[in-house]
Each structure stands twice: as C-alpha cells, then as structure tokens.
Design a protein around this nucleic acid. Sequence first.
DNA 1: TGTAGCATGTAAGCCGTTACATGATTGA
DNA 2: TCAATCATGTAACGGCTTACATGCTACA
Lengths: 185, 185
Amino acid sequence: MGQVPTATAYALLGLLTFDRDNAEPDDAGLTGYELKQRADNTLRFYWVSPATSQVYSELRRLETLGLVHADVRPGRRTTKRYRITAEGVATLREWLRTTDTDFPVLKHPVALRLMLGHLTGADQMRGLLEDYLDQLGRRRHELGAVRASLGDDERVRYPALVADWGLSYYRDEERTVRRLLGRLG
Amino acid sequence: MGQVPTATAYALLGLLTFDRDNAEPDDAGLTGYELKQRADNTLRFYWVSPATSQVYSELRRLETLGLVHADVRPGRRTTKRYRITAEGVATLREWLRTTDTDFPVLKHPVALRLMLGHLTGADQMRGLLEDYLDQLGRRRHELGAVRASLGDDERVRYPALVADWGLSYYRDEERTVRRLLGRLG
DNA sequence: TGTAGCATGTAAGCCGTTACATGATTGA
DNA sequence: TCAATCATGTAACGGCTTACATGCTACA
C-alpha cells in the first residue's frame, strides 16, 4: 500500500537537493510552504503542481522512510524545515539509475476540443486556438522569468536546461498553432 | 458525487460522434472493446488511454445520463453496441461552447530526470535523452500511420488536424532534444 | 486443438484534489 | 487595525489503475 515513493514524491525530494548550501545552518532546509512555492516555479511546467496538502503529506511520508529529516523549530509558531538525508540522496540516485522512464503524458484539452470541430464549426475552433495562443504567450513569459532567475549558475545548470527545453516547446507550439489557424482560415 | 461527466467521459462521447454512418443498421454503434481500441489509436496521443474497465463503466454512466444508447444483442455472447443520442450530441456541443478550456498538463518524466542531472552526471543524461529520441521516433511513426489512415476524408478533417499537430510536436521535440544533446557535450 | 483476439465486467486501492480549519507574522 | 502572507494540517472523495475473473469466436 504505497511504501514506495511515487514519481511526484521523487520530484519533491529532488527539489530538496537544490537546498542553497548556506553558511548559516539556521536557514538550512525548506518548509513545506517554501517547497510548494518552488514546485509552482519549476515543477509545474513539465510535471505537476501538487496541492499544498499533498506537499505536507508527502514530506511526512518521506520522513518516515528516512529520506528527509525534519528540523522542528518550536516557538510561537512551530515550523519544520526539511532537508534531504544521505539515504535520501542515495535512494534518489538509485531511482534515476534503475527505474525505467515512462513516455511523457500530455493532457491537451485544446487538442481534445479541436478533434470535435465538426460539432461546432471552424469559427469557434479559431476562437479556441486564439485564446490558447494568448495563454501560451503568458506561460512562456512566466517560464522566461524563471529561466532568467537561474542565470548561468553552474549549480542549476540542469534546471536551466529543462527551462530552455520548456521555452523551446512553447515557441514551437505557438508556431504550430498559428499554422493550424491558417489552415482553418 | 460525479453526476457531471468528466473530460475523459466527454472525450469518449466525442469518439462516438465519428460512428461511420453505415447503410446497415446492424453495425451501428461501437462496443466498449472497439471504443477502447479507438481511444488507443487517437486519444492517447494528446489525452489519455483510459483503462478498459473505465471505458465500460463510463459507458454505463453515460447511458444512465441518457447521453448514449445501448443496443443489446443477445445470443451466445451478449454484446452491447453504443451510439450517441441526440441529447448526447446537444450536451457535448454545450460542453464545447461553455466550459472553459484548461491549459494542457504535461507529465514529462524525461525532463523531470534531466532536472536532477547534477546527481548522475552528463553521461547518464545523454543516455536518457538518446533513449527518449528512440521512443519519440517510434511514437511518431505510430501517429503517422494513424494520420495516413485518415487521408483527406472531409468527415475526419478535424481529427486529421489534431494528428498533424501531434506530428509537428514530435518533430519539434526531436529537434529540441538533439540540441540539448549537443549542449551536454 | 489450442491460442490469440473479442467482449464484458468486479473489487480494491492509491494518487491527488477540493474544501475546510487554524493561527502567527508582517507591513500598509 | 486590518489584510495579505506565512505555515500546517484534516477530512472526504473522485478518477483512474491494477488485478482478477469469465467465457466466446476465429483461425492456424
């Protein structure tokens, strides 16, 4: 019954490996709240943005598995800062090395609707694609800001590669949608 | 508690609108088995391939909602052929017209792993991307066969557009992955 | 004759979301 | 002082998958 972490759990665990190696140990680790924000900044573009409640429950599960360590700070407001453990890093490496990689899954509501264009006519489909183009542009700008924040810092070289990948995808998608619009015209 | 069909249910309902308008009424409609095959041929490239058991249960649900009609053929082997009803078509149109369209969700295990390249090194990431290129090529051929089977039949003009969209996506993705491979040395 | 495909279903369970709930802290 | 943000959870439930079960039909 779910002893093995899911891909989403590994993704969250992976985000913890980018813990800024701070001089001050007081700031080590991330709270569930911060991890959720980080997921919203990066993970959501090519995976999912887990619900806040799931972030907390996954963290608790990873803790019982010994893959993260919770640093509890008592006080008026109790906060927990989570760090990945050595065992967590080893488990993550093992997962990367041995688990086979599924083909990406795309849930594309726009394509799904376009398939049914014979029910609505070309006009409505054009509107659909134009709206989608707007959203794509906004998404691309959001991801562009994330990419810019990564700069050319060697420590986030791979996240930067992934962000560039995403940006290419959005640009290509915009081009393709424009071509489709032309064919509907 | 789920009185309203989900997007997947509408997708399956939509597939039923492409029922070949046969001269022989005996062949009208699709069995759950055939619908599952059709989903595997088309829907899976940009939505999901629902499990067989889900196809059957969704069909039963759509029937209680009056959106499909089940034609039961008794005999040695009882089969049910499902057709979309007039109400089903109206409901589907209403859904297309009024429900707002979510942005696509991409679950990309390859990108997820690439993000964690600092844990494994560039060599393993190159292997990952090369494997992915192989899979992409196979996928593209599968979708190419589907596209070819649609031809330029006006009745499946929109599914053909969607298939072309998918083919563009696969080609662009291959190009982008090759560029990433180049940047990994 | 036996295997692959056709055809339909039940049961159990997990992943993840939505809705709800609580309270501290910070800054306008 | 009041709102936004920080921070952490619980409860309920739905969608979907996996595993299991059954039996017919066509064909090599």
